[in-house]
Design a protein around this nucleic acid. Structure first.
Lengths: 128, 128
DNA sequence: TGTTGCCTTGACGCGCACGTCAAGGTTTAG
DNA sequence: CTAAACCTTGACGTGCGCGTCAAGGCAACA
């Protein structure tokens, strides 16, 4: 199938697919006229990328999953590198949850009273 | 005091302070040689901005707080607009917490089993 | 033959909060 | 007199995942 159909079937855009290719996440055969040609397996790859993005993983994080599928595994997260990404992300999420809970309590306190005495420590606030 | 001292006392950089000014969050008197001159009140404003940033609020969100302090209130969050920002942010944080909990459970499940059947809905994933 | 709808590459734009030069002017110490 | 340490404005860079033209080639239908 060509890029437009793949985009439609995956619920994304041709621009995104070309971007994935530029990042080395997706490869395409070329037809005689230069058009990209994709297989069902490529559709599978795109869906994998999308589900990873849905849990807040970056395209960089998606690399090992794609490599795992390319290596012939039935699921992208059955390889050690992929599971390591999961573990790292889980740690990030846990840190973020903790931080957000603190922020939440701060906001609730400020909304409840007009007490300007509580000042939060300026820790890093990275929540994906 | 001049911009370097204010930056040092606030624990930030001159570039950040000039940026706040460009965004209309901070104003400065000018000395005869063109240098910016700040007061203790300006230091207070900068600290307010920093504590708001620490809970994930944007500079845009900080505007009503600064306006509130400029209007003479002792705390920046005692004005209606500021409290509205708090309420909106609290709702955002709650939504983010819910989403992160779901993500967490997804990651834990994937790490526990190699079950590729669960696929997350591609909801928006905006966590500040 | 022309129009429409697909495809190609390339390049710039966006948001956000600044960082990082560049190219100068000012003030103070030695 | 000069060097260091301040200050000024302006402009471009950063990360990330694309969106949005621009300018053109290819394929199918009227």
């Amino acid at each position: 199938m060509r890029i437009g159909e793949l985009a439609k079937r995956a619920g994304t855009t041709t621009r995104a697919l070309r971007f994935y290719e530029s990042q080395g996440l997706l490869e395409a055969q070329r037809m005689s006229n230069g058009y990209r040609e994709y297989s069902e397996h490529d559709l599978r790859l795109v869906r994998e990328i999308q589900s990873l993005q849905a849990v807040g993983l970056s395209l960089e994080d998606a690399r090992p999953f794609v490599a795992c599928l390319r290596a012939g595994h039935e699921s992208g997260d059955s390889c050690p590198d992929s599971r390591e990404v999961y573990r790292r992300k889980l740690a990030e999420v846990d840190a973020c949850l903790e931080r957000l809970q603190a922020v939440r309590e701060f906001l609730v306190a400020r909304l409840a009273f007009q007490d300007p005495c509580l000042v939060p420590e300026p820790k890093e606030f990275l929540c994906s």
